[in-house]
Simulated assay, not measured.
Amino acid sequence: MTTTYTPGASSHRYARAAVHLWPARESGKRASWVLVPEPTTVPKTRRRVRGKLSDWGLAAQSDVVELLVSEVVTNAMRHSWGAVMSLAMDDGTLRCEVQDTNPALPQVREVHEGDEGGRGMYLMQALSTSWGSHPLSTGKVVWFELACEPAGTPAGAEGNGDDD
């Protein structure tokens, strides 16, 4: 199932595209932000993501998530007029989606030692569980997923921890 959110007239002028959000079954485990092409957007988004991960008990994964968020948000800010980012946690999987207004899909390209950019897709491949992109009539969505467990939750743990 896919949920669609369309910003209303009061939304920032840079983000007028429909947002394709991945549904999260866990209550309170989804967040989204409108991103505008300003110099402070990438660091501000990293701080917001770090805070949300902490709220969800996923602070241990912050470094990797922040790095990947920096990559997708930086690309969106460089190549479009704005974006919307969503973050959702469900069944041990964290998913980040960035929808922007540029229809060009990201491509892995050959990178040379002196190049200042072009390594983002390599980082996505190396650090995420899965990633991809797909076109929309209003631009594209670039996404990645990571397997994440909240702190103090052993893998395969079930129940709420109450002994009856």
Rank of each mutant, 00 (worst) to 15 (best):
S133E: 02
A151Y: 01
Q125C: 02
D91R: 15
G120T: 08
A147D: 15
G118M: 04
A104E: 14
T101I: 02
C148Q: 11
E145D: 13
P135L: 06
G118I: 04
D100S: 04
Q99Y: 06
E113M: 07
T138K: 00
V98T: 11
S80P: 06
S130W: 08
G82D: 00
W131N: 00
H112D: 15
L94E: 12
P154I: 03
E149F: 12
T129A: 08
H79R: 03
S80A: 12
H134I: 04
Y122I: 10
A104G: 02
S137D: 06
D115A: 08
Q107L: 13
M85S: 00
V84A: 07
E145M: 11
T129F: 12
S133W: 08
C148I: 04
F144E: 08
G152P: 13
G152L: 01
A147T: 14
P135T: 14
S137R: 08
E97M: 07
P150D: 09
L146Y: 09
S130Q: 12
S130Y: 05
V141A: 03
P103A: 06
L127P: 10
E116P: 05
S80Y: 12
M89E: 13
T153G: 05
L87W: 13
H112Q: 09
M121N: 03
D100W: 13
G139L: 02
A151M: 08
H134L: 13
F144H: 14
D115R: 12
T101Q: 03
D115H: 05
G120Y: 04
K140A: 04
C96R: 09
G120S: 05
E110T: 09
L94Q: 08
G118W: 00
W131A: 02
S128P: 01
T153I: 14
M85N: 07
S128M: 12
E110N: 11
P103N: 10
D90R: 11
